[in-house]
Design a protein around this nucleic acid. Structure first.
Lengths: 148, 148
DNA sequence: GCTGGCGTTGACGCCCGCGTCAAGGTCTAC
DNA sequence: GTAGACCTTGACGCGGGCGTCAACGCCAGC
Protein backbone atom coordinates (compact mmCIF):
# COMPACT_ATOMS: atom_id res chain seq x y z
CA UNK A 1 0.00 0.00 0.00
CA UNK A 2 1.39 3.42 -0.94
CA UNK A 3 1.09 6.59 1.02
CA UNK A 4 -1.91 8.04 -0.80
CA UNK A 5 -4.04 4.97 -0.23
CA UNK A 6 -3.11 4.70 3.42
CA UNK A 7 -3.91 8.36 3.94
CA UNK A 8 -7.29 8.00 2.29
CA UNK A 9 -8.17 4.86 4.24
CA UNK A 10 -7.25 6.53 7.51
CA UNK A 11 -8.95 9.79 6.65
CA UNK A 12 -5.81 11.87 6.83
CA UNK A 13 -3.29 13.33 4.41
CA UNK A 14 0.01 12.28 2.91
CA UNK A 15 1.63 15.31 4.49
CA UNK A 16 0.62 14.10 7.94
CA UNK A 17 2.02 10.63 7.27
CA UNK A 18 5.36 12.02 6.13
CA UNK A 19 5.39 14.15 9.24
CA UNK A 20 4.76 11.14 11.48
CA UNK A 21 7.61 9.34 9.78
CA UNK A 22 9.83 12.34 10.34
CA UNK A 23 9.01 12.08 14.05
CA UNK A 24 9.87 8.40 13.95
CA UNK A 25 6.30 7.71 14.97
CA UNK A 26 5.24 5.76 11.91
CA UNK A 27 8.30 4.52 9.99
CA UNK A 28 7.76 3.16 6.50
CA UNK A 29 9.46 0.50 4.44
CA UNK A 30 10.51 1.51 0.96
CA UNK A 31 9.67 -0.07 -2.36
CA UNK A 32 12.35 -0.42 -5.03
CA UNK A 33 11.42 2.87 -6.62
CA UNK A 34 11.77 4.78 -3.35
CA UNK A 35 8.04 4.93 -2.68
CA UNK A 36 6.91 4.39 0.90
CA UNK A 37 5.31 0.97 1.40
CA UNK A 38 2.78 0.36 4.16
CA UNK A 39 0.94 -2.71 5.37
CA UNK A 40 -2.34 -3.33 7.16
CA UNK A 41 -0.55 -3.15 10.48
CA UNK A 42 0.43 0.43 9.74
CA UNK A 43 -3.23 1.23 9.29
CA UNK A 44 -3.86 0.01 12.82
CA UNK A 45 -1.05 2.17 14.17
CA UNK A 46 -2.38 5.14 12.26
CA UNK A 47 -5.92 4.64 13.53
CA UNK A 48 -4.53 4.53 17.05
CA UNK A 49 -2.77 7.84 16.51
CA UNK A 50 -5.85 9.50 15.06
CA UNK A 51 -8.13 8.26 17.82
CA UNK A 52 -5.87 9.69 20.48
CA UNK A 53 -5.48 12.92 18.56
CA UNK A 54 -9.25 13.28 18.55
CA UNK A 55 -9.00 13.10 22.33
CA UNK A 56 -6.60 16.04 22.20
CA UNK A 57 -3.45 14.01 22.78
CA UNK A 58 -0.28 15.51 21.39
CA UNK A 59 1.64 13.33 18.95
CA UNK A 60 4.35 12.57 21.50
CA UNK A 61 1.68 11.30 23.88
CA UNK A 62 0.59 8.79 21.27
CA UNK A 63 4.07 7.33 20.98
CA UNK A 64 3.78 4.79 23.83
CA UNK A 65 0.54 3.48 22.35
CA UNK A 66 2.07 3.10 18.91
CA UNK A 67 5.16 1.39 20.30
CA UNK A 68 2.93 -0.90 22.30
CA UNK A 69 1.13 -1.99 19.15
CA UNK A 70 4.43 -2.34 17.31
CA UNK A 71 5.61 -4.62 20.10
CA UNK A 72 2.74 -6.93 19.18
CA UNK A 73 0.35 -6.23 22.03
CA UNK A 74 -3.35 -6.60 21.33
CA UNK A 75 -4.16 -2.97 22.19
CA UNK A 76 -2.13 0.23 22.19
CA UNK A 77 -2.97 0.65 25.85
CA UNK A 78 -1.85 -2.80 26.95
CA UNK A 79 1.44 -1.36 28.16
CA UNK A 80 2.27 0.44 31.43
CA UNK A 81 3.63 3.51 29.62
CA UNK A 82 0.29 3.96 27.86
CA UNK A 83 -1.61 3.68 31.13
CA UNK A 84 0.69 6.30 32.57
CA UNK A 85 -0.17 8.63 29.69
CA UNK A 86 -3.87 8.01 30.33
CA UNK A 87 -3.43 8.98 33.97
CA UNK A 88 -1.45 12.09 33.08
CA UNK A 89 -4.07 13.12 30.54
CA UNK A 90 -6.90 12.57 32.98
CA UNK A 91 -5.28 14.81 35.56
CA UNK A 92 -4.54 17.40 32.90
CA UNK A 93 -8.16 17.28 31.83
CA UNK A 94 -9.35 17.65 35.39
CA UNK A 95 -7.11 20.62 35.95
CA UNK A 96 -8.11 22.21 32.68
CA UNK A 97 -11.84 21.72 33.27
CA UNK A 98 -11.56 23.14 36.78
CA UNK A 99 -9.70 26.17 35.50
CA UNK A 100 -12.21 26.79 32.74
CA UNK A 101 -15.10 26.48 35.18
CA UNK A 102 -13.44 28.96 37.49
CA UNK A 103 -12.91 31.36 34.60
CA UNK A 104 -16.47 30.84 33.43
CA UNK A 105 -17.89 31.81 36.78
CA UNK A 106 -15.64 34.87 36.99
CA UNK A 107 -16.57 36.04 33.50
CA UNK A 108 -20.21 35.37 34.17
CA UNK A 109 -19.94 37.47 37.30
CA UNK A 110 -18.39 40.35 35.41
CA UNK A 111 -20.99 40.08 32.70
CA UNK A 112 -23.84 40.18 35.20
CA UNK A 113 -22.35 43.22 36.93
CA UNK A 114 -21.80 45.05 33.65
CA UNK A 115 -25.37 44.38 32.60
CA UNK A 116 -26.75 45.60 35.93
CA UNK A 117 -24.81 48.79 35.52
CA UNK A 118 -26.02 49.20 31.98
CA UNK A 119 -29.61 48.71 33.13
CA UNK A 120 -29.08 51.20 35.93
CA UNK A 121 -27.90 53.73 33.38
CA UNK A 122 -30.81 52.85 31.11
CA UNK A 123 -33.15 53.34 34.05
CA UNK A 124 -31.53 56.69 34.63
CA UNK A 125 -32.09 57.49 30.97
CA UNK A 126 -35.62 56.12 31.26
CA UNK A 127 -36.09 58.43 34.24
CA UNK A 128 -35.44 61.25 31.83
CA UNK A 129 -38.47 60.88 29.51
CA UNK A 130 -40.63 62.09 32.42
CA UNK A 131 -38.35 65.09 32.26
CA UNK A 132 -39.03 65.02 28.55
CA UNK A 133 -42.70 65.38 29.46
CA UNK A 134 -41.77 68.57 31.19
CA UNK A 135 -39.90 69.59 28.09
CA UNK A 136 -42.41 68.18 25.64
CA UNK A 137 -45.26 70.65 26.02
CA UNK A 138 -43.35 73.14 23.94
CA UNK A 139 -43.96 70.81 21.05
CA UNK A 140 -47.67 70.37 21.86
CA UNK A 141 -50.42 72.50 20.63
CA UNK A 142 -50.61 75.37 23.07
CA UNK A 143 -54.37 74.98 23.36
CA UNK A 144 -54.06 71.35 24.32
CA UNK A 145 -51.61 72.30 27.03
CA UNK A 146 -53.73 75.09 28.41
CA UNK A 147 -56.73 72.75 28.76
CA UNK A 148 -54.95 70.95 31.57
CA UNK B 1 6.18 57.56 32.49
CA UNK B 2 8.45 55.56 30.21
CA UNK B 3 7.89 52.07 28.91
CA UNK B 4 10.01 50.29 31.53
CA UNK B 5 8.17 51.81 34.45
CA UNK B 6 4.76 51.14 32.97
CA UNK B 7 5.73 47.54 32.28
CA UNK B 8 6.94 47.08 35.84
CA UNK B 9 3.85 48.68 37.36
CA UNK B 10 1.58 46.48 35.28
CA UNK B 11 3.62 43.34 35.86
CA UNK B 12 4.44 42.81 32.23
CA UNK B 13 7.34 43.44 29.87
CA UNK B 14 8.42 46.20 27.54
CA UNK B 15 8.27 43.76 24.67
CA UNK B 16 4.59 43.14 25.31
CA UNK B 17 3.87 46.87 25.39
CA UNK B 18 5.60 47.43 22.10
CA UNK B 19 3.62 44.56 20.67
CA UNK B 20 0.33 46.06 21.88
CA UNK B 21 1.27 49.34 20.26
CA UNK B 22 2.06 47.52 17.06
CA UNK B 23 -1.47 46.10 17.14
CA UNK B 24 -2.83 49.60 17.71
CA UNK B 25 -4.18 48.36 21.01
CA UNK B 26 -2.19 50.64 23.29
CA UNK B 27 -0.82 53.61 21.32
CA UNK B 28 1.82 55.76 22.98
CA UNK B 29 2.72 59.43 22.76
CA UNK B 30 6.35 60.21 22.16
CA UNK B 31 8.75 62.36 24.13
CA UNK B 32 11.21 64.67 22.36
CA UNK B 33 13.93 62.05 22.34
CA UNK B 34 11.70 59.45 20.70
CA UNK B 35 10.96 57.58 23.91
CA UNK B 36 7.40 56.34 24.42
CA UNK B 37 5.51 58.41 27.00
CA UNK B 38 2.62 56.93 28.99
CA UNK B 39 0.17 58.35 31.49
CA UNK B 40 -1.86 56.90 34.36
CA UNK B 41 -4.74 56.30 32.01
CA UNK B 42 -2.57 53.94 30.00
CA UNK B 43 -1.98 51.95 33.15
CA UNK B 44 -5.75 51.46 33.45
CA UNK B 45 -5.98 50.29 29.84
CA UNK B 46 -3.11 47.94 30.39
CA UNK B 47 -4.60 46.47 33.54
CA UNK B 48 -7.82 45.88 31.62
CA UNK B 49 -5.91 44.02 28.94
CA UNK B 50 -4.04 41.88 31.45
CA UNK B 51 -7.16 41.02 33.42
CA UNK B 52 -8.92 39.78 30.32
CA UNK B 53 -5.84 37.91 29.21
CA UNK B 54 -5.84 36.10 32.52
CA UNK B 55 -9.35 34.99 31.59
CA UNK B 56 -7.94 33.54 28.40
CA UNK B 57 -9.17 36.33 26.11
CA UNK B 58 -7.19 36.84 22.96
CA UNK B 59 -5.76 40.30 22.47
CA UNK B 60 -8.29 41.16 19.76
CA UNK B 61 -11.08 40.30 22.18
CA UNK B 62 -9.75 42.89 24.60
CA UNK B 63 -9.95 45.65 22.00
CA UNK B 64 -13.58 46.63 22.59
CA UNK B 65 -12.87 46.96 26.32
CA UNK B 66 -9.83 49.13 25.73
CA UNK B 67 -11.67 51.33 23.25
CA UNK B 68 -14.51 51.63 25.71
CA UNK B 69 -12.15 52.94 28.37
CA UNK B 70 -10.47 55.21 25.84
CA UNK B 71 -13.90 56.64 25.03
CA UNK B 72 -14.10 57.73 28.65
CA UNK B 73 -16.52 55.15 30.01
CA UNK B 74 -16.18 54.21 33.67
CA UNK B 75 -15.52 50.52 32.94
CA UNK B 76 -14.16 48.66 29.97
CA UNK B 77 -17.36 46.65 29.86
CA UNK B 78 -19.71 49.64 29.84
CA UNK B 79 -20.12 49.33 26.09
CA UNK B 80 -22.34 46.97 24.07
CA UNK B 81 -19.41 45.60 22.06
CA UNK B 82 -17.74 44.48 25.30
CA UNK B 83 -20.90 42.78 26.50
CA UNK B 84 -21.10 41.00 23.19
CA UNK B 85 -17.56 39.72 23.69
CA UNK B 86 -18.53 38.51 27.16
CA UNK B 87 -21.44 36.58 25.71
CA UNK B 88 -19.32 35.10 22.96
CA UNK B 89 -16.67 34.06 25.47
CA UNK B 90 -19.24 32.50 27.78
CA UNK B 91 -20.62 30.36 24.99
CA UNK B 92 -17.12 29.41 23.91
CA UNK B 93 -16.32 28.43 27.47
CA UNK B 94 -19.49 26.36 27.75
CA UNK B 95 -18.72 24.58 24.52
CA UNK B 96 -15.13 23.98 25.52
CA UNK B 97 -16.00 22.68 28.98
CA UNK B 98 -18.63 20.35 27.54
CA UNK B 99 -16.16 19.00 25.00
CA UNK B 100 -13.50 18.43 27.63
CA UNK B 101 -15.95 16.65 29.90
CA UNK B 102 -16.99 14.43 27.04
CA UNK B 103 -13.36 13.65 26.30
CA UNK B 104 -12.62 13.06 29.94
CA UNK B 105 -15.34 10.46 30.25
CA UNK B 106 -14.22 8.71 27.07
CA UNK B 107 -10.59 8.61 28.18
CA UNK B 108 -11.61 7.46 31.62
CA UNK B 109 -13.60 4.68 30.02
CA UNK B 110 -10.64 3.56 27.93
CA UNK B 111 -8.37 3.70 30.95
CA UNK B 112 -10.71 1.57 33.01
CA UNK B 113 -11.03 -1.00 30.24
CA UNK B 114 -7.27 -1.14 29.73
CA UNK B 115 -6.70 -1.67 33.43
CA UNK B 116 -9.28 -4.44 33.60
CA UNK B 117 -7.55 -6.20 30.76
CA UNK B 118 -4.17 -5.75 32.40
CA UNK B 119 -5.52 -7.24 35.62
CA UNK B 120 -7.04 -10.09 33.67
CA UNK B 121 -3.65 -10.83 32.15
CA UNK B 122 -1.97 -10.52 35.54
CA UNK B 123 -4.45 -13.01 36.91
CA UNK B 124 -3.59 -15.28 34.00
CA UNK B 125 0.09 -14.81 34.76
CA UNK B 126 -0.56 -15.46 38.44
CA UNK B 127 -2.18 -18.69 37.38
CA UNK B 128 1.05 -19.61 35.60
CA UNK B 129 3.51 -19.99 38.51
CA UNK B 130 1.84 -23.33 39.30
CA UNK B 131 2.71 -24.19 35.69
CA UNK B 132 6.21 -23.00 36.42
CA UNK B 133 6.29 -25.65 39.11
CA UNK B 134 5.70 -28.22 36.42
CA UNK B 135 8.47 -26.78 34.34
CA UNK B 136 10.87 -26.08 37.17
CA UNK B 137 12.02 -29.62 38.01
CA UNK B 138 14.29 -29.73 34.98
CA UNK B 139 16.46 -27.18 36.76
CA UNK B 140 16.41 -29.05 40.01
CA UNK B 141 18.96 -31.55 41.09
CA UNK B 142 17.86 -34.85 39.64
CA UNK B 143 18.32 -36.61 42.96
CA UNK B 144 16.13 -34.12 44.69
CA UNK B 145 13.50 -34.74 42.08
CA UNK B 146 13.68 -38.50 42.26
CA UNK B 147 13.24 -38.44 46.02
CA UNK B 148 9.67 -37.37 45.54
C1' DG C 1 6.47 9.83 -26.87
C1' DC C 2 3.40 12.29 -24.31
C1' DT C 3 0.03 13.29 -20.82
C1' DG C 4 -1.60 12.74 -16.24
C1' DG C 5 -1.60 10.98 -11.84
C1' DC C 6 0.90 9.17 -8.49
C1' DG C 7 5.31 9.60 -5.70
C1' DT C 8 9.85 12.04 -3.75
C1' DT C 9 12.59 15.80 -0.88
C1' DG C 10 13.13 20.51 0.71
C1' DA C 11 11.64 24.61 2.27
C1' DC C 12 8.70 28.30 3.64
C1' DG C 13 4.04 29.77 5.82
C1' DC C 14 0.63 29.92 9.50
C1' DC C 15 -1.19 31.17 14.20
C1' DC C 16 -0.22 34.00 18.75
C1' DG C 17 2.09 36.39 22.04
C1' DC C 18 5.60 37.50 22.86
C1' DG C 19 11.41 36.20 24.09
C1' DT C 20 15.72 37.31 22.66
C1' DC C 21 19.48 39.17 20.25
C1' DA C 22 21.81 42.94 17.41
C1' DA C 23 23.25 47.43 16.69
C1' DG C 24 22.68 51.60 17.88
C1' DG C 25 20.87 56.33 20.45
C1' DT C 26 20.04 59.01 25.08
C1' DC C 27 20.59 60.40 29.54
C1' DT C 28 22.71 60.41 34.30
C1' DA C 29 26.43 59.97 37.58
C1' DC C 30 31.06 59.75 38.70
C1' DG D 1 34.94 61.01 29.13
C1' DT D 2 33.09 57.01 30.21
C1' DA D 3 30.37 53.47 32.33
C1' DG D 4 25.88 51.87 32.89
C1' DA D 5 20.98 52.00 32.70
C1' DC D 6 17.57 53.08 29.97
C1' DC D 7 15.50 53.63 25.27
C1' DT D 8 14.91 52.81 19.85
C1' DT D 9 13.90 49.73 15.49
C1' DG D 10 14.39 45.36 13.09
C1' DA D 11 14.61 40.74 12.75
C1' DC D 12 14.51 35.89 13.86
C1' DG D 13 12.78 32.01 17.04
C1' DC D 14 9.36 29.13 19.29
C1' DG D 15 5.81 25.46 19.66
C1' DG D 16 2.47 21.93 17.05
C1' DG D 17 0.74 20.01 13.24
C1' DC D 18 0.62 20.20 9.46
C1' DG D 19 -0.73 23.22 4.36
C1' DT D 20 1.22 24.51 0.30
C1' DC D 21 4.39 25.25 -3.33
C1' DA D 22 8.64 24.06 -6.16
C1' DA D 23 11.09 21.05 -8.86
C1' DC D 24 11.67 16.75 -9.99
C1' DG D 25 11.12 11.18 -10.64
C1' DC D 26 8.16 6.94 -11.80
C1' DC D 27 4.75 4.52 -14.14
C1' DA D 28 0.44 3.37 -16.88
C1' DG D 29 -2.38 4.21 -20.85
C1' DC D 30 -3.09 6.16 -25.44
Amino acid sequence: MRIGELAKRAGTTTRALRYYEQLGLLPARRAGNGYRAYGEEDLRLLRQIRTLQDFGFGLEDTRPFVECLQAGHPHGDSCPASLEVYRKKLSELDECIARLQEVRSRVSEQYARAERERDALAAGAAAEPPQCEWAAPAALDRDEWEKR
